[in-house]
Simulated scan of single mutants.
Amino acid sequence: MATADGEAPRPEERQIEPLHLPTPEEIRGQDIWNNCAVRSVASGVMGGGLGFFMGMFLGALDNPIMQEEMTTKQQLIFQAKQMGRRSISSAKAFGIMGLIFSAAECVVEKTRAKHDTTNTVVAGCVTGGAISAKGGPKAACVGCAGFAAFSVAIEKFLDRHS
Rank of each mutant, 00 (worst) to 15 (best):
P11C: 03
R14W: 05
I16A: 07
E17T: 04
P18S: 12
L19M: 08
H20K: 13
T23H: 00
P24L: 11
I27W: 04
Q30K: 15
D31H: 04
I32E: 02
W33R: 15
N34A: 05
N34S: 08
N35L: 00
C36Q: 03
A37M: 07
A37F: 05
V38G: 01
R39C: 04
S43H: 13
S43K: 06
S43F: 14
M46A: 14
M46L: 14
G47Y: 03
G48I: 03
G49A: 07
F52W: 09
M54C: 06
G55I: 00
M56Y: 11
F57C: 05
F57H: 12
L58Y: 11
L58P: 02
A60S: 15
L61T: 13
L61G: 05
L61P: 04
N63H: 09
P64M: 00
I65Y: 09
I65E: 15
E69R: 10
T71V: 05
T71M: 11
K73D: 15
Q75K: 15
Q75P: 00
I77W: 07
F78D: 01
Q79R: 15
Q79P: 03
A80Y: 10
Q82L: 09
R85A: 10
S87R: 01
S87Y: 02
S89W: 01
S89K: 08
S89A: 13
A91T: 07
K92C: 13
F94A: 10
G95R: 01
G95K: 03
G95E: 07
L99S: 04
E109L: 10
E109D: 07
H115C: 07
D116F: 06
V121L: 11
V121R: 05
V121A: 11
A123W: 08
A123T: 08
